[in-house]
Design a protein around this nucleic acid. Structure first.
Lengths: 359, 359
DNA sequence: TCAATTTGCCAAAGCGCTTTGGAATTTCTT
DNA sequence: AAGAAATTCCAAAGCGCTTTGGCAAATTGA
């Protein structure tokens, strides 16, 4: 057990950056108890000594050992996030970085760290069990819930606090969630396209075992039904939301006898692929063919400015990360508080990617 | 200290998922020592008891508490990654997700977790100090090193093992790194464009306080010089690598009296923006104007297949993550081993985004 | 056969922190 | 001035694990 030891107590020759409570207390000639209390703001210590202690802590660069502290206090001050990778596609969700940046901001403010685990998509439950058993995290953020997701039941059973980004239709356990009103967003977007005169509208959706994708389709179908337009099932595809899939699906549809005049797409990345398919056929975006999309406000894909490129239902995934982190921390602090449910409406913005149907 | 306690030892009514070593040993009527040794594969325990112990551990869902284990052993089995956010741009690096997925794979195989911290780009050193002082991580992966990056000196000083994704020109401390040969990659790409007859070639680079961006420019300039072509400084920009910046920079250049006939771009995301600028002006990609780019092989931006869209220098950031994770674990295990330096050559692929210069 | 190993197990110390239950010391009452 | 009440501090126990140093019992050697 190589522990960096103090060469000379009372001398200046302290080991850089590794002072522990015991050493600090010896240095000050005060008990560990008092030092600990002084640093943690307990009232049983005079302001004079508190000042002295805090100063010493600063000059000697003391920070309590996180593991020891956690062991003593029974928590880890750590939140678990899980990257699920489907061995089939190996795709990493592009929203991941922005979501984490948002969450990380909140965590930092509350003194939490975030712990990441990568796992194959069907073994997530094992990871949760393990994180709980090892006490590695105090809570978990569940991303991309699926239809009838059994993960929530597992988390509920093992008693690990969690919040969900999205919702999981068909799950019976109670849980806190934050979601965008995906149904409504896509209904609205579809209505907008319909109002422009489009009838053959294609839906390029995410994988429909994901709950949000299913909701989006529902919204799309509702708008179409309301307008009395039949949905051509062959114009609805569900696929990984990559640029490549946007391209290939759009291309296939455009090659058909009756190509769509508008596309409703699940993400900007995917929409860029659709756009490429248009370009390839010499179709002008917003004139010959329209695209509306969902926009997660990814930081490297700005779709803002005066006139956005893409007509879109917009909701910041980064803000969602920040808010969910807050919700989880509340949940951890007050486990008996009622579950929180939070439905955000997407903002619909009109860009240059849509235009009236050209007879 | 709410600790879930065992209701009835010896009875079936064990608290789900929370058995500790002591309880397990009492359950088995064996000392903690022996149970611990049995589970950790020490030889001082008979095969019979080992079997018995391991079975009990499995049925009772026992996993050692990570913090207690870490405290006793003096490590955290945890690797730190830092998300730097420049308050100016607030951009999250889009390669982040894929890099983490690659690294996570390696970590999982070796029993490490990854810990994420978000921090403003100029306060990274503080975070490193804190991670070290609190003992939160056993090592760190440094991403996106800058010119004369002082972070490496800090890490070296505080004795926290680290590896670097990229290199930091002007740093004096020794360190292990893995980098793509960015200079060469851009030299090769520029040469390719030059061989196609292009002379007015624009460089849309990343921020040049980042080391890799500087190297890319060097490569570009070398190729131009070698071909005897003067570089027009106004055709070289350095900016955040977003789609928006790709668009706006390309647009500005295309509006000029003497627009470039080819673009050399720092990332596919950025290249998509350039492409948009071309479309807007009715310029055909690969015919009227050529684009060559760097391709990090992001999982959601496939540029593969028979004929890639973009002519590109290609190197998988995911593979880099996996390899760097391996390097760091080696470094932690054998701190006295010599530093490892690893230079990967990008693979140059020809796509449809480039074509001969149209006099 | 008896000493010398080896085998299989255990009690206890320690990792660095928090917190309980006092014990001194000071200050306040009357 | 003496007892009550704060105030200020401390020793020690405990969080759940690993590891040291030993002690019996089983095995071996001559």
């Amino acid at each position: 057990m190589a522990r960096h030891s103090l060469a000379f107590i009372g001398n200046k020759a302290l080991w850089k950056c590794v002072v522990n409570l015991k050493e600090l207390s010896e240095l000050l000639g005060i008990s560990q108890t008092t030092v600990s209390r002084a640093l943690n703001g307990y009232p049983e210590v005079s302001e004079a000594t508190r000042k002295r202690v805090m100063e010493a802590a600063r000059t000697h660069n003391y920070s309590p050992n996180a593991r020891a502290q956690g062991l003593a206090m029974g928590h880890s001050r750590c939140i678990g996030h899980v990257i699920s990778v489907r061995d089939s596609s190996e795709m990493v969700n592009p929203i991941f970085g922005d979501f984490m940046a948002g969450a990380g901001e909140t965590y930092a403010r509350h003194g939490y760290e975030m712990m990441l685990t990568r796992v194959e998509a069907d073994r997530e439950a094992d990871v949760y069990r393990n994180l709980k058993a090892r006490g590695s995290v105090d809570g978990i953020v569940v991303q991309a819930p699926r239809m009838n997701d059994q993960r929530l039941a597992v988390l509920d059973e093992i008693g690990l606090p969690f919040v969900v980004h999205g919702r999981a239709s068909g799950t019976t356990v109670p849980y806190s969630w934050l979601d965008v009103n995906n149904r409504r967003a896509f209904e609205e977007a579809a209505q907008y396209l319909l109002n422009l005169g489009h009838r053959r509208i294609a839906l390029i959706n995410g994988l429909e075992d994901l709950d949000f994708a299913r909701r989006r389709r529902t919204g799309f179908e509702a708008a179409m039904a309301q307008a009395g337009v039949d949905v051509d099932p062959s114009l609805m595809v569900t696929d990984d939301m990559t640029e490549g899939h946007g391209y290939s699906n759009a291309r296939a549809m455009l090659e058909r006898a009756e190509p769509p005049s508008a596309f409703l797409v699940s993400s900007i990345i995917c929409a860029l692929g659709v756009q490429r398919a248009l370009d390839e056929r010499g179709l002008r975006l917003g004139t010959d063919v329209s695209i509306a999309t969902f926009d997660d406000c990814l930081s490297y894909l700005g779709n803002g400015g005066e006139t956005p490129v893409f007509t879109a239902a917009r909701s910041s995934v980064r803000a969602a990360g920040a808010e969910l982190a807050d919700m989880l921390i509340q949940r951890i602090r007050t486990p008996d508080a009622p579950q929180v449910e939070c439905l955000w409406e997407a903002e619909f913005v009109v860009g240059t990617s849509t235009g009236p149907y050209q007879g």
